[in-house]
């Protein structure tokens, strides 16, 4: 068990190092660098002509003229040692200040989305498998196919459209107007909860569809297993039997794909955020990519990936806890 965990942890560390290299490469990719954009922004419209020498001077003061590997070490060092993600150019402040509490908003949104995904897909998947071949099963299958085919951002638009029609109100955003800029309070938190269901539903949409199909397939397999027949042959009541034997094993593929689901949710986050007007990391990521504010974008990309890697680890832990064959290295 310990060896299993240690192995996973080492693998996770190596992955994170490689991820940081890759994110840094993406940050370096757009033509021009921080100094160019900083100079352009600072002096544009002021009538001052900027020369190459000015830019070079800025570059030198910021240490951006040093070779890439050194700058990479600086960047990673800042993050690991001081939790400092560098400077954002668009707002002339630090990346940390911009990202700030949006991290918690995003994590909260992720958590609600995940809970919603599993709370819906696991029971429905199990139900569809038990009722296999009936009209209910057929209907659920069709729905889950649609879920896979309708991209989340289009679903968001459709939902907004109908909300607009039926309630005549805008349901986008994470907060009501009164609370958008207000300091945190119990009332603001409640306001957030009231707004959270729509983005959570939209983000959970395709993960839900995917998991319903997975749970249904595994559950169908498990239902035919000899261990289930054997349990029935010892007189176990049907409901207890279903929950204790096949349903328990049908959880395995769900648990092992938690990281994958988080990846899927984060992948769709920026675009859904743009459509629904969510003011959190996804929205900020998209904006900073459009503005080429690569320090902010890189920081967010790295954070999202760290969460995914972390969730992969959690999923490994849960899997080991659920399945003795993995735990005991069988």
């Amino acid at each position: 068990m310990l060896r299993f965990l240690a192995g996973r942890a080492v693998g996770m560390a190596v992955t994170l190092v490689l991820v940081s290299v890759m994110v840094f490469a993406i940050m370096e990719l757009p033509p021009g660098d921080y100094a160019d954009r900083y100079a352009f922004r600072k002096y544009s419209g002021t009538g001052v002509t900027i020369t190459e020498a000015d830019v070079a001077a800025i570059r030198h003061t910021l240490g951006l003229d040093r070779p890439a590997p050194l700058r990479y070490l600086d960047w990673v060092g800042g993050i690991v040692l001081h939790g400092d993600f560098g400077k954002a150019y668009a707002f002339e402040t630090s990346v940390n200040a911009i990202i700030g509490q949006k991290v918690w908003l995003t994590l909260g949104l992720l958590f609600v989305t995940l809970v919603l995904t599993y709370a819906v897909s696991i029971p429905i998947g199990i139900y569809a498998a038990v009722r296999r071949g009936t009209a209910t099963d057929y209907g659920l299958t069709v729905l889950s196919y649609l879920g896979l085919a309708l991209p989340n951002f289009l679903l968001a638009l459709v939902l907004l459209y109908f909300a607009n029609r039926w309630f005549g109100a805008s349901v986008g955003g994470l907060f009501g107007q009164a609370y958008e800029k207000a300091p945190w309070s119990a009332a603001k938190l409640w306001d957030l909860v009231k707004h959270l269901w729509l983005p959570a539903l939209v983000l959970a949409w395709s993960a839900m569809a995917y998991q319903i199909q997975t749970v249904r397939a595994t559950m169908s397999d498990e239902l035919g297993k000899l261990s289930v027949i054997a349990a029935r042959a010892r007189g176990l009541p049907e409901m207890r039997l279903l929950l204790k034997y096949p349903a328990r094993l049908a959880l395995n593929p769900v648990v092992s794909t938690i990281g994958f689901d988080v990846n899927r949710i984060f992948s769709e986050l920026p675009i859904v955020a743009a459509v629904l007007g969510l003011t959190e990391l996804g929205d900020l990521l998209l904006k900073s990519f459009l503005d080429l504010d690569m320090n902010v974008a890189g920081a967010i990309l790295l954070l999202l990936t760290v969460v995914i890697v972390g969730m992969n680890f959690v999923s490994d832990l849960l899997l080991a806890w659920l399945d003795p064959r993995i735990r005991l290295g069988g």
Partner: peptide
């Protein structure tokens, strides 16, 4: 595989 796909594409496309 761990880097979220669309943000990754965004980063590349932004360049």
């Amino acid at each position: 595989r761990v880097i979220p796909v669309i943000p990754l594409y965004m980063g590349l496309a932004a360049a």
